[in-house]
């Protein structure tokens, strides 16, 4: 009996189970077939995709245990400062199985040549640096969902009113990560720390993406949806 019990995998952390269920469905970019292939078509598709992703991210955040307990103002502040990190982490996760390719959506992946042709090379190179980091760590789905929720809760927005409440959310997620790694990867005692240490590069990559999209907004050549504009402006 003792042997059978020790061979049984540890039960999955309830927070991890919850976050796995809360994972959004796959999104498709559906580039406009009316536009000629090139930077305008790719950028239009990306801006449209980003707008739909923000809607999905807002719905996802509401499913994170503890997030709805924050005041509405703090929910807004947290999302306004961290949505792009959540979005970028999702792109990095989707790109993990593909060597040197950024998977913006299921039907929209760019290799170096494609990214250069689409005027997205600088952004893609930054994203690939993050992807390589997660690939080297062999990031798992359970870790990805925890890290994504932590990226949101790790908001350093100066507009947060009840910082203690946000800190509590952060602590619960941090504890879930430690518990998960402790039970699933006891042979790697520094793994949780290694994962948390990817958050600075995630923020840096999101800042590069913000710079890219803000440049597009200022260029005025690509139509952007209202929610996307609202969220971009909240970060400036």
């Amino acid at each position: 009996i003792a042997t059978a019990t020790s061979k049984k995998p540890a039960p999955i952390n309830p927070m991890v189970s919850h976050l796995l269920v809360a994972e959004p469905e796959k999104l498709y970019a559906m580039p406009d077939p009316a536009l000629p292939d090139g930077p305008l078509r790719a950028t239009s598709a990306l801006c449209d995709l980003a707008d739909r992703e923000i809607v999905v991210i807002i719905g996802w955040a509401k499913n994170i245990p503890g997030f709805p307990a924050l005041s509405l103002a703090d929910q807004m502040s947290v999302l306004q400062s961290a949505w792009l990190e959540v979005l970028v982490l999702g792109v990095a996760w989707r790109s993990l199985p593909c060597e040197d390719e950024v998977v913006f959506a299921e039907d929209f992946a760019l290799d170096e040549e494609g990214a250069r042709a689409a005027g997205l090379w600088e952004l893609s190179a930054a994203l690939l640096q993050l992807v390589r980091k997660y690939r080297a760590l062999r990031l798992e789905r359970e870790e990805y969902v925890l890290l994504k929720a932590l990226a949101l809760a790790n908001s350093d927005s100066v507009h947060i009113e009840d910082m203690a409440a946000v800190q509590r959310l952060r602590d619960v997620l941090h504890e879930a990560l430690l518990e998960y790694e402790g039970s699933r990867r006891p042979e790697e005692p520094r793994r949780a720390g290694k994962l948390l240490l990817t958050l600075p590069l995630l923020r840096q990559t999101a800042a590069r993406a913000l710079h890219h999209f803000y440049g597009i907004k200022l260029g005025g050549k690509v139509p952007m949806h209202k929610l996307f504009l609202e969220m971009l402006e909240a970060m400036m």
């Binding site: 809607v55 807002i58 719905g59 509401k62 807004m76 306004q80 969220m231």
Partner: peptide, 19 residues
């Protein structure tokens, strides 16, 4: 809130329609 009205509405109402 006026400047961030879509986010405000989505958080409050939870409906992604008519954006």
């Amino acid at each position: 809130t006026e400047r961030h009205k879509i986010l405000h509405r989505l958080l409050q109402e939870g409906s992604p329609s008519d954006i």
